[in-house]
């Protein structure tokens, strides 16, 4: 079912014509990604249409009380996805008439996708949204569902119906290093090269992960990390030591050359760091 042409795109780079999918695994991931989409839209004075099952949701990314002309909340209701689609089409048409250059739509499909009857209609509705968004030069959309609450086969179909998969914006990104939050498992994915020039940004990103979470383990996905210096290893070991008694710091998918360096230096010099899952030649597909 996986489409060959699907592309993983940070939420900040989602553009008009993108009909994107987000299978999130909890409030933290939902708010991180959807919040960025909503916040950017409101800041740019785009029209934001927020669909969910709740009549009075806490909308992530909203600061203060934006005017109703800018932010519209649609309740998806319990009569299947059809009425919600009609309401959405009407809102989009109204926003176009009002002269908005950009319209951001995000719809939570968790409730509809849980019901096998509604799920069939949902895929038809997705096709209609696709026809609405893809040719548009104004509309971008993120359809989303809690993947822990939706049957896997429905998730797979919904996922395949979207050519773009929404991803978190990097916490940090320059020509050398990229740091992105991960939510399942909780932690950070590091890519590029890490040395003293960028210790501070890793420290900040780690502090955010550690501050936001329970006391569970924190994972660092190192699959794309080509270099790590001794100072950064020291920093990680210090973080692990400060968390003693709580969840460990786990290094996942470590490239062999990094593993070799740490083995030469001695794991006994890095107490508190654990090796997680092994590096795989092909990165695991992300939901």
């Amino acid at each position: 079912m996986e489409t060959f042409w699907s592309v993983r795109r940070p939420v900040g780079r989602i553009r008009p014509g993108d009909h994107a999918w987000l299978g999130y695994c909890g409030v933290e991931e939902h708010d991180h990604v959807v919040g960025a989409f909503v916040r950017e839209g409101l800041l740019a004075r785009d029209k934001v249409i927020y669909l969910c099952a709740d009549a009075h949701p806490e909308i992530p990314g909203v600061v203060g009380r934006p005017p109703a002309s800018l932010l519209t909340v649609l309740e998806t209701g319990h009569d299947g996805p059809g009425p919600a689609l009609a309401a959405l089409a009407a809102e989009v048409a109204a926003a176009e008439r009002a002269g908005f250059a950009a319209i951001r739509v995000t719809a939570d499909l968790t409730c509809a996708a849980r019901d096998p009857e509604a799920a069939r209609d949902l895929l038809d509705c997705e096709a209609a949204v696709e026809r609405l968004v893809r040719p548009s030069t104004a509309i971008s959309a993120i359809c989303r569902a809690d993947r822990r609450r939706v049957p896997p086969e429905t998730m797979a179909r919904l996922r395949a119906a979207h050519a773009v998969h929404a991803a978190p914006d990097p916490d940090f990104e320059d020509a050398v290093l990229q740091i992105v939050r991960t939510f399942d498992p909780r932690g950070l994915a590091l890519s590029g090269e890490l040395d003293a020039s960028r210790h501070t940004v890793l420290d900040q990103a780690l502090a955010l992960v550690l501050a936001g979470g329970d006391h569970g383990p924190v994972h660092l996905d190192l699959a794309e990390l080509r270099f790590i210096d001794l100072g950064a290893l020291n920093m990680l070991a210090e973080v692990a030591a400060r968390r003693a008694g709580r969840g460990p710091l786990i290094l996942d998918r470590m490239p062999s050359q990094l593993h070799e360096v740490i083995t030469t230096v001695g794991w006994n010099m890095l107490p508190g760091l654990q090796v997680g899952c092994a590096a795989t030649p092909d990165p695991l597909p992300r939901p």
Binding site: L230, G231, L233, N234, M235, A237, E238, A240, A241, V261, T264, V265, G266, N268, M269, L270, P271, G272
Partner: peptide
């Protein structure tokens, strides 16, 4: 070498190992 079990002590010692 730095004492065992104390994190954050990799430095020139580790350079000698590498």
């Amino acid at each position: 070498p730095p004492p065992p079990g104390v994190p954050g002590r990799l430095g020139l010692w580790a350079v000698r190992l590498l």
